Amino acid sequence: MRRIFGFCAVAAIGFTALAASSPASAAYHLIRWRDTGFCQIWDQNIPTAPYPGNFRVIVGSEVPTFVDALVFKDGMLRSGACSF
C-alpha cells in the first residue's frame, strides 16, 4: 500500500512539474452559426470541431486571449453582424 501511495505521489509531482513548465497556449476564434446568426467564441485547444458544422469562422486568425475575443464579439454585436 505504501508503494502505491509513493508511486502516486511521485506521478502527481511529475505531472505538476510538466504542466508548470509547458507554456499555456490559448487560441480563440469567433464563429457565427449560419441558421441563427448567433456568434460564439470557440477555443481552438478543444480537439473537436463545433457541432453541427453549419458555422463560419468570422475571425480567420487566432485571437490570443479570451478577453480580446469578447471585445471583438461585442463590436460585432453592436454593428449588427451577430445576433445575441
Results as ranks from 00 to 15, higher is better:
residue 37 G to T: 02
residue 35 D to Y: 11
residue 76 M to Q: 09
residue 13 I to T: 09
residue 32 R to C: 03
residue 9 A to T: 14
residue 26 A to N: 11
residue 40 Q to L: 12
residue 15 F to L: 15
residue 73 K to V: 02
residue 69 A to K: 01
residue 2 R to P: 04
residue 26 A to F: 14
residue 33 W to N: 06
residue 59 V to Q: 05
residue 66 F to A: 03
residue 30 L to S: 03
residue 76 M to V: 04
residue 54 N to T: 09
residue 34 R to Y: 10
residue 60 G to S: 07
residue 67 V to Y: 07
residue 73 K to T: 04
residue 56 R to H: 00
residue 71 V to Q: 08
residue 80 G to W: 02
residue 83 S to C: 09
residue 80 G to V: 01
residue 11 A to Y: 08
residue 74 D to M: 05
residue 36 T to F: 07
residue 83 S to Q: 08
residue 1 M to R: 07
residue 46 I to P: 01
residue 33 W to L: 08
residue 80 G to L: 01
residue 83 S to P: 00
residue 24 A to G: 12
residue 19 A to I: 02
residue 24 A to C: 10
residue 40 Q to M: 14
residue 19 A to F: 11
residue 35 D to N: 14
residue 49 A to R: 10
residue 58 I to C: 02
residue 80 G to H: 00
residue 10 V to I: 15
residue 11 A to S: 10
residue 70 L to Q: 13
residue 62 E to I: 00
residue 81 A to Y: 09
residue 74 D to E: 12
residue 20 A to P: 02
residue 34 R to F: 05
residue 45 N to V: 08
residue 51 Y to G: 10
residue 54 N to F: 07
residue 40 Q to E: 15
residue 44 Q to P: 03
residue 19 A to M: 11
residue 76 M to D: 02
residue 70 L to N: 11
residue 1 M to L: 09
residue 16 T to H: 05
residue 83 S to V: 15
residue 10 V to N: 07
residue 19 A to L: 07
residue 15 F to D: 06
residue 2 R to D: 08
residue 72 F to C: 00
residue 29 H to I: 10
residue 52 P to G: 05
residue 43 D to N: 15
residue 30 L to H: 01
residue 45 N to G: 13
residue 67 V to K: 04
residue 31 I to V: 13
residue 49 A to K: 12
residue 24 A to R: 14
residue 40 Q to A: 15
residue 47 P to R: 04
residue 9 A to W: 13
residue 59 V to F: 01
residue 67 V to M: 02
residue 38 F to H: 11
residue 53 G to Q: 10
residue 14 G to E: 01
residue 59 V to H: 06
residue 42 W to M: 06
residue 80 G to N: 00
residue 44 Q to T: 11
residue 50 P to G: 07
residue 77 L to T: 01
residue 36 T to E: 04
residue 13 I to W: 09
residue 17 A to Q: 04
residue 76 M to S: 04
residue 71 V to C: 02
residue 76 M to W: 02
residue 77 L to G: 00
residue 43 D to S: 07
residue 48 T to G: 06
residue 48 T to Y: 09
residue 14 G to L: 11
residue 83 S to A: 12
residue 12 A to C: 14
residue 59 V to N: 05
